[in-house]
Write a protein that binds this DNA or RNA. Sequence first.
DNA 1: CATGAATGAGACTTCATTCAT
DNA 2: AATGAATGAAGTCTCATTCAT
Lengths: 236, 236, 236, 236
Amino acid sequence: MNPAVEIPSPRRRAPASAKSEQRVRDILRVGREVFSERGYERATTTEIAQRLDISEATVFTYFRGKRELCTRVIGDWYDEIIATIEAGLPRERDIRTQLQFFVQTHLRLFLTQGTGLCALVLSEGRSKGQEELGDALAPLQRRYTAPLMDLLARGQASGEIRRDVPLRLLRTMVLGPMEHLLWEAVLQQRPADVDETVRGLLAVLYPALQAPHAELAALRRFRVDVEAAMHRADGG
Amino acid sequence: MNPAVEIPSPRRRAPASAKSEQRVRDILRVGREVFSERGYERATTTEIAQRLDISEATVFTYFRGKRELCTRVIGDWYDEIIATIEAGLPRERDIRTQLQFFVQTHLRLFLTQGTGLCALVLSEGRSKGQEELGDALAPLQRRYTAPLMDLLARGQASGEIRRDVPLRLLRTMVLGPMEHLLWEAVLQQRPADVDETVRGLLAVLYPALQAPHAELAALRRFRVDVEAAMHRADGG
Amino acid sequence: MNPAVEIPSPRRRAPASAKSEQRVRDILRVGREVFSERGYERATTTEIAQRLDISEATVFTYFRGKRELCTRVIGDWYDEIIATIEAGLPRERDIRTQLQFFVQTHLRLFLTQGTGLCALVLSEGRSKGQEELGDALAPLQRRYTAPLMDLLARGQASGEIRRDVPLRLLRTMVLGPMEHLLWEAVLQQRPADVDETVRGLLAVLYPALQAPHAELAALRRFRVDVEAAMHRADGG
Amino acid sequence: MNPAVEIPSPRRRAPASAKSEQRVRDILRVGREVFSERGYERATTTEIAQRLDISEATVFTYFRGKRELCTRVIGDWYDEIIATIEAGLPRERDIRTQLQFFVQTHLRLFLTQGTGLCALVLSEGRSKGQEELGDALAPLQRRYTAPLMDLLARGQASGEIRRDVPLRLLRTMVLGPMEHLLWEAVLQQRPADVDETVRGLLAVLYPALQAPHAELAALRRFRVDVEAAMHRADGG
DNA sequence: CATGAATGAGACTTCATTCAT
DNA sequence: AATGAATGAAGTCTCATTCAT
């Protein structure tokens, strides 16, 4: 028994019934709105409560505090993204197609509902004095980039992706431009044409990732294939 | 001098002596430190004043308030970057060399002191009720990317940079990975070897920007056209 | 540089001018009132501010928080007691006289203004979760009992106090009844006749402390001395 | 049963079944634990409910509120002590033996679970706006010290205890050191050897309470008279 | 010009208590 | 009888900003 250790008085347990689960969802939903609109510091528990027309105390019945709520908001959002990617990634297709899916899905999710959250993560996750949040984010960040790393690794194994450059750098080449596009979108409040952007991005990006001469070979094969297909269509 | 922030706008007095100007510079310098270390909300006028060993009230003698000080800090920072790039860019050398200078200079400036300011801009330019700042930022953002856009355009003109992709996208391919590298560096507290990093980045990046050989270019265009046609057929 | 260490934003320094010292004194004075009337938990910074007709924020300009204010209040009070004892203790007189001074001074100080503070220290200094306050008190507690321990030790050296019992127990025999008297006074809100009480207490207490047969010897000597004095008065 | 707290006073229902009584006992038992560990203010109904694994609301079904529960807890505790002493006191033995029983029983009861409750009484019986509790405590306090007073009175009657000092003071000499020992034990987290402590305490204490020999008594009275006369001459 | 001093406004958080079910 | 759920009221503390000197 160390006398210097203060035993904290136990917190109220958050209920777990159907009704309360709804409450949790409501608070998370509105919390996501407010945090993404205002950022962590400018978001207030008061505003979250007001938008739901509930007492501020109720928010604290379901979440230990502002910080935990924010962590949950971000965590849930990551989970959604990760789930969407993992569920939809067309693993049987070629690497380029998978990459395109990856990029497109991300941009769509971010641009349609997530610019605020994106900024939240980007700015709150890194500034000094936010290590708790940063720490909570680290594993999510890993799970979040895992599919991409895996994709690139498989590409290297199959020879579709160049092997003369560390994976880390390739990842940077993919995520970097994506983030930059988001940043532009955030600053300009302009929600851009995702599909068009993705096509353009891939056109520049993929050659950089390909094995040095593979592109030429692939395009030639492609041309031959298309030609053959046309012949089949014409003649058959 | 950035037009959006150049009015000193003191509330009661307009100091113009040499001593006053030194004060303004001091406050801007320390303000930059503090804002970049802590972000806007977590930065306090108290801390800024204490680091200068002056009274908090003095800060308010020279700046209308925290917000204005922050705007000036950001504006000055942009000005510096722009000036450094514009002054040093070796316009007589080939495009790759110029690009390398651009990338290297940026990474150096950012890694030295700019990651915090970068996040500051990101988080402040956005959230609700901060439109003023966002508006003040837009022209800076434009001037800031101008040298790069110019560089890429000259590259296209000279045939060193591919012409089959919009400039905007090429810019994204340059700035995106740079920013991502910075973000990684900050999160991992690993002060990265700038020169080494720049070399690696350019090795992957430049080929993607280069004008491809004729056959390659034609094949690429072909592929893009087919894809677009497919999309039209699919989506309508 | 450990990224997990959060650098706290620096606190405002408490001013040190004559005016501000007066403020500190005022707040300590009223803080002493309120803490002693209500105990730590029920005392509020709001009430302290209201009684002084100042803003609550002002209290926090001069003290880091409620806890620090309370610690200062208690510390100052101890200091007063210690100073009074140390200054007034008649070291040239016999042990009994010194002990009487010690007991009397304490009871007077406690009963006239300190019952609330006494209860504050007794109850707040020991309950779980108050270790910070308890720790701050420990050295005071030592300084506070030091004169008594010294007194008893000198008594043992001179043969006036029995040596067959550990000092600790003797100290308990002195402080215990004193505290009990205070406790009674606190609970009954009855401020008791200090002088009368002290005389009675000493009459019972001192014999218990004396060397087993010393009392008899001392009283005999006393009687002889008084008689001699009377003779001198009559005859001389 | 303590008259001041015997009314169960449920707000809406008056449960009287065996099951209900068990609930009341459970809550009182755990309430005692929590109040004694944390003190009144820092104890929470949440913690009491959680330790019993019942709903907070249930506590309020059986007690009007926190305050009433606390009053009952204290009352029951007093009742227990009083009952234990009254039942076990060996009235047929000599006074010293009875006193030893009294002291030993108290220390044991206190050290087992009572130090917190002791402080609880001390802090709750006092501060402003708590007069109700203080009033409820007074009769308990009286019943609680009654056996000791009786003991000492019988000692005086039989000549075993000195008669030259008011009973009240003798009581103080007994209870005071006991309480002080408890306090030390709590502060030092050292669970003291009760039997050893009691022996030591009695060895110093009892002689002080004993009727002195005739000469000694006369001399003591003489000394006190002289002192009183001096005081009259000096002050009054 | 510089600042010591003060503060209004508001943030997060806790907890005893109520009430419908 | 028991409780899930909600909340009013209150408390501590922070900070940009003002103003007289």
